[in-house]
Nucleic acid binder design. Structure first.
Lengths: 225, 225, 225, 225
DNA sequence: AATGAATGAGCTTTCATTCAT
DNA sequence: GATGAATGAAAGCTCATTCAT
């Protein structure tokens, strides 16, 4: 993580196209994180992958196409990460919700390099419709999945008067904003604190499921008060 | 707001330096919002301001300096906006807090153009230390001010077990994330809903001050429960 | 003729070298006619022949060599065309001359595609000595053959004061110029008119052999005046 | 003629735009004649004009635009040349016609450099609609002007049975073809011979005006036969 | 014999910066 | 102060050529 792709051994000239594309996407992510979006050149990307200058236009149509594929890759990786977390989590809504939140701060997706790249794409989204669409789609997939979960939780509570849509919007927003802290103040932002932060706010809304310290309310307790 | 700067009348060749600088900064904001950070050129900026090509290097040291001044201007505008809101607000912590939140979604600072530019700078922050510093400072100023307010609120509650730092982090994060919605899904994100969203989460933490529907608890009620 | 070479059936990997070379030359002619000389790439040529990218450098030394062979092929085809016409023509000088002129506007050599390619090579001739030589040789072969024919005609007339060399130069020039009309104004230039044009000019010089309407003077008439 | 533009003196940085454009067009003509169309790069053109690399895209939109303007310039120069010749010529049709033919072989327009460039453009005409249009227009202007002249001559003769359109086509074609000789065999092609060639063919069609040796028939003679 | 991934030189183009006016 | 022509470095991209397979 964070280092330029290094050529360990003189690699065979012909590798599978998919592998080459992945190498180039990885190098693109490295470069955007390191140099920024505006300063990333195809020469940087090629050099980072230990390949020759013309390679990108060979495997991708253009620089723009490479960037789009990079964003697509990032999106896919993000989606797979929370999907996997959900698969592993307990069946109850609150367990699923917490798994999802943990996943958002999993070092695999939430590290300074990846976050920097996400912000780079968001930063260009307004002026590039394709990015806008891909970013909006990512959020939409995440939100849809979480909405059902929160709705169940509200019913289970029950928590009358809590609008699930508003909760989803808030959690998703808080996550993105906490990522910004990872980017801007990496010293003070850390996984544990970020998760605690989200749980604190949730505990206020869902006291029958979550204590203020972020720990889960066990069923016997819940039935009691 | 939102349109390229237009030259209404043949302006006098000699205007004050400050005015020229402001014109160029405004045009820079317009261009970043319209074309994106990476695609903004000095020619665009000059043309947007109705001025000649060489003008930027005359009034600013370089393109980089113009961008830095633009970010500084944006930061300053943001700070003045919440400062003004605070000055106008009631003296109690909860009133101040709500005023602050409202200010964050004031159309003057939270519109798609300005938000796009903020994200553009955040997107470049990792690779440009100066931006990083300016962005972190903006957040720090905001957080410091809010921290005192939340601390008072927690004491006033009292809300034992609520960590003011965590609350500040969460609100600030949620705000930034809600801005992203303005950028990515302008159709569905609006001021009223954003404010409602933040208040909902606050109501969970500070029930003696804020009802779930986001309205203020009046003092007599509070003394009751 | 006129369309890109199409691969009808999965061809055997091993075809005779000569056939491959011919395929590539045909594809080169198609590409130059379609895209122009400057825009013709080896990838175009290979794709047009339904073959792989590296093929040209395999069957020809280089792109330049392919182009030279293409010009050579064109020259050869042109020469064979008038040769064949002469073989078929009557033995008299005027019959030979008319056969030659007809041959120059035979659709096999004088169609918009082929003419475009000829002009493409002429267009590059000044800066490429090899092209210059090949083009000059083509003209020389044609002129030499025609010179003898005209000389006979002049003697047969007799047409004292008509310089055969000048006549040859003029006819050859008119032919090339009429080809340009095929290239530039294909709508109005056609075989019949082109032939009529050349014959009109010849009728003025050789009135004992050719009438103003382009038809042949029969022997009995000729003896008369 | 024929040599690269040379920088005689350290020229002032700011020259009129028109002058710069002309310099670049001249350099383009030099380069196409020297290196050919396909091998002419903007770097060559800029260097030939003694200017910096980026200059062409500054004064012309693109390379293609420069080439189009070059062709336009060439066309204009050609038209002005025969126009001027006509203005100077005697009023009679035959005098005008001969002046026109002389003009076509005037060293100002018919020299190896210029002819090479004309052929370069003709060589690319099929695949570039703009060139095609410009070239066709050039021919059309020339033909229209000459058609009237020939029609008068035919009437004056009278030369019943001579189709003026066919004569115009033939003369124009012969001219273009004789230019090709200047390009391909500069040693043997010269102004005097080219003019003699055209006149020879005309003398056959218009014997009351032109003798076989190319000299003019004086009026008294004409009335005689 | 044939393929097509890979190379890298060189192209057009862009653009921050300079500077004579 | 302000202009905009000019510069030249560096970008994205093209493509002839090479070569492992």
């Amino acid at each position: 993580m964070g280092s330029e792709a290094v050529v360990e051994k003189p690699r065979r000239r012909t590798e599978s196209k998919a592998l080459r594309r992945q190498q180039l996407i990885d190098s693109t992510i490295d470069s955007i994180a390191k140099r920024g979006f505006a300063e990333t050149t195809l020469a940087d990307v090629a050099a980072g992958a230990g390949l020759s200058r013309g390679i990108v236009n060979f495997h991708f149509e253009s620089k723009e196409q490479l960037l789009i594929e990079t964003l697509r890759h990032l999106s896919e990786e993000y989606r797979r990460n929370w999907q996997k977390a959900l698969d592993r989590a307990g069946k109850s809504p609150i367990e699923g919700l917490l798994a999802l939140i943990d996943a958002d701060f999993d070092p695999a997706v939430c590290n300074r390099k990846k976050v920097a790249v996400w912000y780079a794409f968001w930063g260009e989204a307004k002026s590039r419709p394709t990015y806008l669409k891909l970013c909006a789609d990512r959020d939409e997939a995440y939100s849809q999945m979480m909405r059902a979960m929160i709705a169940d939780l509200v019913q289970e509570g029950p928590y009358p008067g809590v609008d699930p849509d508003l909760v989803v919007t808030g959690i998703a927003a808080m996550t993105d904003g906490l990522w910004l802290d990872v980017l801007l103040t990496p010293k003070t932002a850390d996984r544990k604190q970020s998760i605690a932060c989200v749980r604190l706010f949730l505990s206020g809304l869902f006291p029958r499921h979550l204590k203020q310290d972020g720990s889960l309310v066990t069923d016997p307790e819940r039935s009691a008060p």
